[in-house]
Amino acid sequence: MSANALQQAVYERLSENTAVAAITGPGRVFDRRITRAEPPYLVLGEIVSSDYSTGDGPGAEHRFDIEAWTRRNGRREAVELADAVRSALHDADLAVNGATLVNLRHERTVSHRAPKSALHVARLRFRAVTEP
């Protein structure tokens, strides 16, 4: 399946997006949470891939999360960063190495204060379909 290639394309889009960088600064997209990194930043979270083949050919469905972590300005900044991510990815035409991106849709965003910390997080869920 093309999950790694999809994640790379998402990483590149977010890393190059000026609206995201205006909030986070450059180089603030990670594939895991860096506990010593100062927010705001983005974390590419869980990705679940499933067979989505049809009578016309093979395909894959990918559901993945992106987390927007912030400290100052709390939930408001987390939601602003989440909005920038949504704008960068929803219905985007990404170049996925070795696959064709059929569609990429934002499904939901949930924001909350992280337990036992002064951090806020907005978790975005996306759904993508790819074909070889």
Rank of each mutant, 00 (worst) to 15 (best):
M1V: 10
S2I: 05
Q7E: 14
N17Q: 12
T18K: 02
A19G: 00
A19F: 03
A19K: 13
V20A: 08
I23F: 02
T24K: 02
P26C: 07
V29I: 11
F30S: 01
D31C: 04
R32L: 07
R32S: 06
R32M: 07
T35C: 00
A37H: 05
A37V: 12
E38P: 00
E38F: 01
E46W: 10
S50M: 12
D51I: 10
S53Y: 06
D56A: 11
P58A: 15
A60R: 14
R63E: 13
R63T: 14
D65A: 03
I66K: 04
E67D: 06
A68T: 04
W69H: 06
T70R: 07
R72S: 01
R72T: 10
N73V: 10
N73D: 15
G74L: 08
G74R: 15
R75H: 01
R76S: 14
E77Q: 14
V79M: 08
V79D: 14
E80S: 11
E80H: 14
A84I: 15
A84R: 09
S87Y: 08
S87T: 15
A92F: 11
L94G: 04
N97W: 00
N97F: 03
L101F: 06
L101M: 05
R105P: 01
H106A: 08
E107Q: 14
R108V: 12
V110G: 01
S111Y: 11
R113H: 03
A114L: 13
P115V: 12
P115L: 07
S117I: 09
S117V: 04
L119P: 00
A122S: 08
A122I: 02
R123I: 15
R125C: 05
V129M: 03
P132S: 06
P132I: 14
